[in-house]
Nucleic acid binder design. Structure first.
Length: 512
RNA sequence: GGUCGGUUAGCUCAGCUGGUAGAGCAACGCCCUUUUAAGGCGUGGGUCCUGGGUUCGAACCCCAGACCGGCUACCA
């Protein structure tokens, strides 16, 4: 293994040994009494110079400019960078100048974690800095970081842009690209805001099984696994919908879960095999109520993350200010194509789709054709948040039939930046109707639809005991995060997006 | 799944019609002996993704494979 080390890695190992020879522990276990972050000092110093007479910060050494007895360096902590000024005689009290001459100037490498104690001041050139009085080594770095540098003209050197490098070694990406760290901070703020919003309204955050004997609640192919003791097949959940609705049968007023779901399907800019879905169910409400709730929550989220309802996304500014635009699905199609399809039969729809240049498979039913027309002619035009309501019943086996419109269900999707971000309905709680819908799905399955739902007897049993009228929603957290953080790919809002394993070692043989 | 493109130093990248490897940053050394704005000079560093083939000669051409990416398809 050692013969594979690069020159720079060898130098760092030599420095590590020198450190040990000098009696310095390169990986000390003691706590380090950090008092400030670099951000706090940058923000607070101007108005409270006296407050920073003694500060203690810690982080990675990111640059070093040595000029004889005095040096400047930059330390990066979780909040940003801080320049520090190191003067030989200030960190080395007596005759022994080893700490400065050897340790600071030679043995430290960029990327090492150090802690410093000192006082804040402003240099002659106007840069807020910490004058170091004590320097402590906290952790030695043995691999060179691709640290970016920016010159006086604003030209950036060595920025890591290779997606493979960024995703496989996210720890490096996070270290050298502060804006990547910030993206994930925003994602976390977004999720916290949603959690607060729902918890304040009295809804209960719950956890339901990831390993399910029968997958359901969505149309997708699952991952399959096996439990040894029970000698049973389990599936990684594709949704948690049916479990949350069982809890509604159990009597809660509202339950929600931020759930990792798994779908064994293609990968793209918008799809990762595991992804996060927030599902919420509220008793004694319908989908109209849920639309109001959703736009209020997303508006709240935008305010919590950005302090405004206007968010820059790519070339567009998206406004999450209520109310959002609402179209029925037929209304949207009429609006964007000028064609009223509401009274058409399947043959008429087929001709209409052909006329619009949309490819229609023979196997497609009425609902699927309508969905196809919408997808081709409307969805990509919906940049500002928009609700599309009242979907064909064939596509929605878990949604309640519409109060007044035959053939439709009480369902809406939220579309934003041309992508679906949520899907909601008045939940079907009629156990007899639900059984019929499941049986229709079984028929689809027999005809070869790999994504058709299974018939879940236990779920039907639960419904037979009675579920209150309930509104439910699923929000694609990763997709919403892409919009809220202005990222083009789902991989940029997941710390560790799924990739093929690196083949650095021969593939392991199966063994247990 | 289809298709197009990519893979060269620790990082970002050049490399012509095939002639045997380059830059900047980083590293190392020296200078500067000091409140800097990538400070100056120098040195080292390569399995050109892998395996075959063509050729006197391959980073470059051909074949196969690996991995990555863009479009596209699938995906309620």
């Amino acid at each position: 293994m050692n013969q594979n080390l690069s020159e720079q890695e060898l130098v760092r190992r030599e420095n590590l040994q020198k450190m040990i020879d000098l009696g310095i522990e390169p990986y000390p276990s003691a706590t380090f009494p950090v008092t400030h972050t670099s951000k706090e000092i940058h923000e607070g110093y101007e108005t409270n110079k006296e407050g920073y007479k003694e500060v203690c910060i810690a982080g990675r050494l990111m640059s070093r400019r040595i000029m004889g007895k005095a040096s400047f360096a930059e330390i990066q902590d979780s909040t940003g960078k801080m320049q520090v000024y190191v003067s030989r005689d200030d960190i080395c009290d007596g005759e022994d100048k080893t700490l400065y001459n050897q340790v600071f100037k030679k043995i430290l490498d960029l990327g090492d974690f150090i802690g410093i104690k000192g006082y804040a001041f402003v240099t002659q050139t106007g840069t807020l800095s910490i004058h170091v009085t004590e320097l402590t080594i906290l952790s030695k770095s043995l691999k060179p970081l691709p640290i970016t540098k920016t010159d006086a003209d604003g030209k950036v050197y060595d920025e890591v842009t290779d997606p493979e490098f960024k995703y496989r070694q996210r720890y490096v990406d996070l270290t050298v690209n502060p804006e990547v760290r910030e993206t994930f901070v925003q994602r976390s703020k977004m999720i916290n805001a949603m959690r607060n919003f729902m918890t304040e309204r009295g809804y209960l955050e719950v956890e339901t099984p990831v390993l399910q004997p029968m997958y359901g609640g969505a149309a997708a192919r699952p991952f399959k696994t096996h439990h040894n003791t029970l000698d049973t097949t389990f599936y990684l959940r594709i949704a948690n919908e049916l479990y949350l609705k069982r809890l509604m049968v159990g009597g809660y007023d509202g339950v929600f879960e931020f759930a990792k779901d798994f779908r064994n399907e293609g990968m793209s800019r918008f799809h990762n095999p595991e992804f996060t879905m927030m599902e919420l169910y509220v008793a004694y409400k319908d989908y109209e109520w849920m639309m109001d709730f959703t736009e209020e929550m997303v508006e709240y989220v935008a305010m919590a993350v950005h302090g405004t309802t206007d968010v820059q996304v790519g070339e567009n500014v998206i406004s999450f200010k209520r109310p959002w635009k609402r179209y029925t699905m037929y209304g949207a199609i009429e609006h964007f194509t000028g064609i009223d399809i509401s009274e058409m039969d399947e043959a008429g729809l087929r001709d209409t789709a052909k006329g619009l240049g949309i490819h229609i498979e023979k196997s497609m039913g009425k609902g699927k054709i309508i969905d196809e027309i919408f997808g081709e002619k409307c969805e990509h035009l919906l940049i500002q948040p928009t609700f599309i309501t009242d979907y064909p019943v064939e596509m929605s086996p878990l949604a309640k039939k519409h109060k007044t419109k035959p053939g439709l269900v009480e369902r809406f999707e939220g579309i934003c930046n041309a992508k679906e971000i949520c899907n909601a309905f008045s939940e079907l709680n009629d156990p007899i109707d639900q059984r019929n819908r499941f049986e229709e799905q079984l028929e689809l399955g027999k005809r070869g639809d790999e994504e058709a739902m299974q018939l879940d007897e236990d779920y039907l049993r639960a419904l037979e005991y009675g579920m209150p009228p309930t509104a439910g929603i699923g929000i694609g957290i990763d997709r919403l995060a892409m919009i809220i953080t202005n990222q083009k790919s789902i991989q940029d809002v997941l710390f560790f997006p799924q990739m093929k394993p690196e083949q650095t070692v021969p593939p392991q043989t199966e063994s247990e």
